[in-house]
């Protein structure tokens, strides 16, 4: 953890602004706490709180049908909830930008987070989502920009997995 969350969340937020993101769908996660607050405070971003992550996949398909770019924020445990809904994205070539904060990966103290955290990248790849990893805060802004460009210009689903090493492991001991 080389910079605090209020600092690195700004990097993601600024990159999302530059990518002209208009809808921000999320299931809350501690790793996205500051980013969610920044997006809520931005009058040009419509935030949508979801009951489950798969809703976000469908929501952002609808947003794109209407000409709006969106981003889906979740933690790694939400990846499994998206599986069947990702068929919508794959079959229709919808762009999809996902930013996934990782659990179960680096110094995890809740063993129940480990199975989905370890499976997340493989599950996404199996469902046709391009997986990109960010391990250091300096790579966040360029990582979001590159993922957004690939998603919205090349009509692809791209998931940016933000390492638990960067976020910092939550302590349950």
């Amino acid at each position: 953890m080389d910079e605090s969350q209020p600092v690195w969340s700004q990097y993601i937020y600024q990159a999302l602004k530059e990518a002209e993101i208009g809808q921000v769908a999320y299931v809350p996660d501690a790793g996205h706490k500051d980013l969610i607050e920044l997006c809520h405070a931005d009058a040009r971003m419509r935030t949508v709180s979801l009951t489950t992550e798969e809703e976000g996949v469908a929501l952002l398909a609808g947003a794109w049908l209407g000409g709006t770019r969106g981003v889906l924020l979740m933690q790694s445990s939400g990846v499994g909830n998206c599986i069947n809904m990702l068929s919508l994205v794959e079959e229709c070539r919808f762009p999809l930008l996902m930013i996934v904060t990782m659990r179960g990966q680096w110094g995890e103290t809740n063993p129940w987070q480990v199975p989905m955290g370890q499976a997340a990248a493989a599950v996404l790849a199996t469902c046709g989502v391009i997986v990109q990893h960010v391990e250091a805060t300096r790579d966040l802004a360029p990582g979001v920009a590159a993922a957004a460009q690939m998603a919205f210009v090349s009509n692809r689903a791209v998931a940016l997995l933000v390492s638990q090493r960067l976020i910092g492991a939550k302590k349950f001991d």
Binding site: Q23, E55, L59, A61, L65
Partner: peptide, 12 residues
């Protein structure tokens, strides 16, 4: 997913 596709479209 149909109703939420509609939500995203309605907001856009």
């Amino acid at each position: 997913g149909a109703a939420v596709v509609g939500l995203g479209l309605a907001l856009a």
